[in-house]
Structures are given as structure tokens and as C-alpha cells.
Simulated assay, not measured.
Amino acid sequence: GSRLIEWAVAESHTLGCQMVQLTSDATRIDAHRFYERLGFEASHLGFKLQL
């Protein structure tokens, strides 16, 4: 997983992207640690309304 994310980030940078953004379910604590180890920072809190 790390290698895939690192490749995607590098490819994005090569293509001139300024930011890589992702979303993760709030209950996936292990996933959050994984992304933080790769340098991502938690920055948003999302909301949903089921209809």
C-alpha cells in the first residue's frame, strides 16, 4: 500500500499537481495512522445527511 501511495504522490507532483487529497471513514483509525506515516495531515471533518 505504501508503495502505491508514494507512486501516486510522485506522479501527481510530476504532473504539476499542488495537492493530493483523500478521504477515509472516521472509524478507520489504522488507516489514519497509515496515511499520517506517509506524511498526510488530517485537515477536515465531513458531514453527511442520509435521505
Rank of each mutant, 00 (worst) to 15 (best):
R28W: 14
A42I: 02
Q18I: 06
I5D: 01
V9R: 06
D30F: 00
G46R: 13
G1V: 06
G1H: 04
V20C: 12
K48G: 02
Y35E: 10
G16T: 04
T27M: 07
H13N: 12
E36K: 09
T23P: 01
G39N: 11
V9K: 09
K48R: 10
A10P: 00
L38D: 13
H13A: 13
E11S: 10
T23M: 13
G16N: 06
A31H: 04
K48Q: 05
E36Y: 07
S24E: 02
S12K: 03
T14K: 15
D25S: 05
A42Y: 14
H44D: 11
G46Q: 12
A31V: 05
G46H: 11
V9G: 04
G39H: 08
S24C: 08
K48C: 00
G1I: 00
Y35T: 07
T23V: 05
I5C: 05
F34V: 04
A26N: 12
G16Y: 03
M19A: 15
Y35N: 09
G16W: 03
A8D: 03
R3F: 01
Q18E: 06
Q50A: 05
L49V: 05
L22D: 07
T23E: 14
C17L: 14
S12V: 06
H32R: 09
H32L: 07
Q18H: 12
A8P: 02
L38E: 13
Q21Y: 10
L51R: 08
S24Y: 00
V20W: 03
Q18R: 14
T27S: 12
F34W: 10
F47A: 05
G1R: 03
D30T: 03
G46M: 11
Q18T: 07
F40N: 07
R28T: 09
A26M: 07
L22Q: 11
Q18A: 09
I5R: 00
L38I: 08
C17Q: 15
M19D: 15
S2H: 10
D30I: 01
C17S: 13
Q50Y: 07
L38C: 13
S24T: 10
L15M: 12
S12P: 01
L38W: 08
R28M: 14
S24I: 02
C17R: 09
H13D: 14
T23L: 03
E41S: 08
G16A: 05
F34Q: 03
C17W: 12
G1P: 00
V20I: 09
L38G: 10
L4W: 04
I5N: 01
H44Y: 06
C17Y: 15
